[in-house]
Amino acid sequence: MAPKRLKEVENDMISTLPDPILCHILSFLPTRISVAKMGLVSRRWRHLWKHLQAFHFDDSDWNGEFRKMFKRFAFFVNAVLSLRKSRDIRKFHLSCSISDVYHFPGDCVDVWLHAAIGPHLEELDLTISNGLGARLCLLPHSFLNCTNLVSLSLVGSIHMKIQYSSVHFPSLKKLKIDPGILELDIDIVENEIDIVDPLIPFLSCCPVLKTFDTYFDSSFLTKVPVPPSSKRLKSSERNFSWTCLEIDSDWLSSRDSGGIAKTTLGIIGNLQNVEEAYLDVFSLRQSDFVDPILCLLHHQNGDLHLLLRHSTSKVKILLLLFLF
């Protein structure tokens, strides 16, 4: 009998913890569960979710016909965001696909982002897919005020314009970003600035970045001219330095129309401290199950050299290189 009694005492202890601690547990659950399930537990738990400062919205939690599904999902997110009592949002995870633009405008996503954005935001994780004419989801300019951001993940149909001078994320440690999301807001003709991947000025404004995760596809290799040494950037006042990954391959250059003998992936500034970098190379072609690099080494006359410049580093980079 004794162990059972002890168990009851323990149980009592956790449920008598103050609301903020219970809310802390809720903040690790999908928001739908915090609202719909935990709200049914007891009178005290009924309204706990209203004090949440961390939200996880995922439309895959909703079943049913696709068009109705997003409408329900959007209704739920709108309801949660308008009924919450705590105004500060620390974490905001949103994963959804917007495709029924003709019946329900996807603009509400922009409004949700406005709600999430603020000085308290530490984690922003957006995975957005759209189709059937839905426009890109725009990250508002005020996003650049989220200077307490620690983790940022932008995947899918998201777009943001940035300026060199306006980006400053002093606490950002983790960044995952799809290529093409950022656009530099500059007048190229007027300024005669080299076209560089907008990620580069963005990264140069993240002084404590530890994990960076992105990928380049083969079109990036040929279409985006990479400054070969970028001394200009290096000498800028942002303490920016250039790290290069060179892929030197006859095979690559002959397959891509450019005919350039050496392909240089110029990437990721501010990486004086890189310790580890990963390069995953894989093919999206269904017939190729074999590692294309291995395949290349076996069957090609040409050489393939991989070279990562910069030898001392603490930052981990994950590079995914798609070969089409």
């Binding site: 009851e8 149980n11 449920s15 537990v41 007891s42 009178r43």
Partner: peptide, 17 residues
Amino acid sequence: ANKSVEYVRRYFGIEND
């Protein structure tokens, strides 16, 4: 996360009021 409301009550030792 994927349990019933009854399970959650038992888990935390909460009485259904």
